[in-house]
Write a protein that binds this DNA or RNA. Structure first.
Lengths: 338, 338
DNA sequence: CCTGGCACTCATTAGCCACGAGTGCCAGAA
DNA sequence: TTCTGGCACTCGTGGCTAATGAGTGCCAGG
């Protein structure tokens, strides 16, 4: 078990290393922090911390840097979430208030997060599975061609072309539109399949294939578009990886371009509270020297999507966590209002 | 005036420099290219080329590298566009054929371009100004709240919430929807304002404010959404700037994150043929050591948007131009089919 | 106008050395 | 026990010098 002071030493190491980006030695530590003990004592503590795997020497007889395990302990036990200043809060609010539609909200959020944390920001579009239907519209484009438009409560719009097996009359279309909406509006996407199951039966025999086709496309849209979209920003901040530059940044950029990777990354986020994944805790190889700080957000109690940042393991965790949490809250508010 | 052989020397310098990424000397040149003259002669030619500003020495008595002006001459006079191989063409086709909707087409195009050229790819969404209206839909969400959905011939969908001054009946809405569509469907966005100008007059006096509000929102959408969207990909390829890495890559990444910059960049593209902007020809400072190769694309004769790549001035121009042109053609085909 | 020869330039690399931040260990004090 | 001061040792960093070699400009002669 680690004594109180040893934890204090670890905290000091993390803080100094994050600040200076250089391995930190025992002497420097005692000078910058009031630990009340001599460098020699700190050295002993460091030896213990190293044995336990919390810190590490880049090479023999250099200063120490935290390991992933060290950061983990720091995040879990030694540091809280740093709340934003009033000025920052105001900045967030005024920046997000100007958004005109969902795309804009997401775009602004990405910029905001990137600027605030000086890291790469990742924002997932509000997910369809957990949203509800606001409206389904059917438009006749040609005799046997219908456009299906799906509008969600988060303001997202999806459209699909439907090629019908036979020409479809305006009245049938209006009928279908009305019945469809009366059944599904306000319901969750996941409930839609069972709600529309018997709908074809209530139509004339001739129209049933058409109705079935339209419904099939609707269900397909629900499934397909559950592949969620993600917006990325602030990649220029990666250049602050001053160290072994090309080597580090390359795989990170590659990973960030893979929507799949990002989705998986965000998928591992807990439903409540800020989630931090440090270094090798991230499954993806290219991200093994980065940390992900993410959190769910939503218009109500429940999270409909996630947002967060990706940065070097050597990051200011309390500040980053504070910024991510705050932004998520404001975005949630904005979504609830619209 | 430059003699034939001197141009040949310039071409050789560009080709070698692009290949090796190192300043090229007179001896190496005569070895790799059958110029039929001795290194000494080449040196004299080089001296002339340097005096004319086509090439440059990084420092006294090193090899030569092309200047922006040198690349310009190379692109304009010395090199054509290299057509793709049959295999590459097939790859493009099969890759793009799988796309399901407009977003997907753009996303796939970006990936394709990035992979093909090994550079940063930029694709502009088909522009609204040059598109035509396929359908306008009005949905009643609440008594005094209407959702306006605009569908373009390129498959793009835009929606806006409209808060009306007074409750609006279903019949009025249906009436407006019908008249609106009969007037604007098939017409260009730029023609819409004059087409709907007198529309409010044909409604009951009480409904005119509502109609006017809806129309205002429609026109606003046309203008606002003319701010065009852009998709970016392949930023990981920037790491192939091996040279003065952080210094070079930073401003480039920053520039690429600014939609405005990208739009301005693509805005300068000629309407026909592949446009190449080299180094300082790009207005933006951060892009002064990159070149942009871009071209318009569209479903018909006319370009509705642009796509291209951004890479180091030291790039394989013929190959890049070939790839960009080929991709643009296929995307145009895909759009025309849908 | 082209060529071979020659002296010169200068970035790069390797080798060397002094410096100093940092360590581990140990004996003695608290 | 726990902490401290002292001390020898490690090793990356930075400055210096010398050797290397690719590349140049210039010139005299074909």
């Amino acid at each position: 078990m680690l004594s109180e002071r040893r934890l204090e030493v670890l905290r000091a190491i993390v803080q100094d290393y994050v600040g200076t980006e250089e391995p930190v030695g025992s002497k420097a530590l005692t000078e910058r922090h009031r630990l009340g003990v001599s460098p020699a004592t700190v050295r002993n503590d460091m030896a213990v911390l190293e044995e336990e795997g919390f810190i590490q020497q880049p090479y023999t007889s250099a200063g120490r840097i935290p390991t992933d395990k060290g950061y983990r302990l720091f995040v879990d036990k030694l540091a809280g979430v740093k709340p934003l200043t009033a000025a920052e809060r105001r900045a967030i609010q005024s920046f997000l208030d100007g958004a005109v539609d969902l795309d804009d909200v997401v775009a602004r959020t990405v910029r905001l997060l990137a600027q605030l944390t000086r890291q790469v920001a990742v924002v997932q579009y509000p997910s369809l599975t957990r949203s509800t239907v606001r409206h389904v519209e059917l438009l006749s484009l040609a005799p046997a061609r219908v456009m299906l438009v799906l509008i969600t409560d988060t303001g997202r719009v999806e459209q699909r072309l439907v090629d019908c097996p036979s020409p479809v009359g305006e009245t049938v279309l209006a009928d279908l539109r009305a019945r469809l909406n009366s059944r599904v509006v306000g319901h969750r996407f996941s409930d839609v399949p069972s709600l529309v199951q018997d709908l074809p039966d209530s139509f004339e025999h001739d129209d049933r294939p058409t109705v079935a086709t339209v419904l099939a496309t609707l269900l397909e849209t629900l499934v397909e578009e559950t592949e969620e979209r993600i917006m990325l920003g602030g990649t220029a901040n990666l250049t602050r990886f001053n160290h072994d530059f090309p080597l580090t940044i390359r795989p990170v950029l590659e990973a960030l371009e893979e929507q799949v990777v990002l989705l998986k990354l965000l998928g591992e986020v807990k439903d409540s509270g800020v989630t931090v994944r440090i270094g090798h805790e991230n499954a993806h190889e290219g991200l093994s020297s980065t940390s992900v700080v993410a959190v769910g957000y939503g218009s109500g109690d429940e999270a409909v999507a996630r947002l967060g940042v990706v940065g070097p393991t050597r990051m200011d965790y309390p500040g980053t966590m504070g910024a991510v949490r705050a932004v998520a809250r404001y975005v949630g508010q904005i979504l609830a209002e619209s």
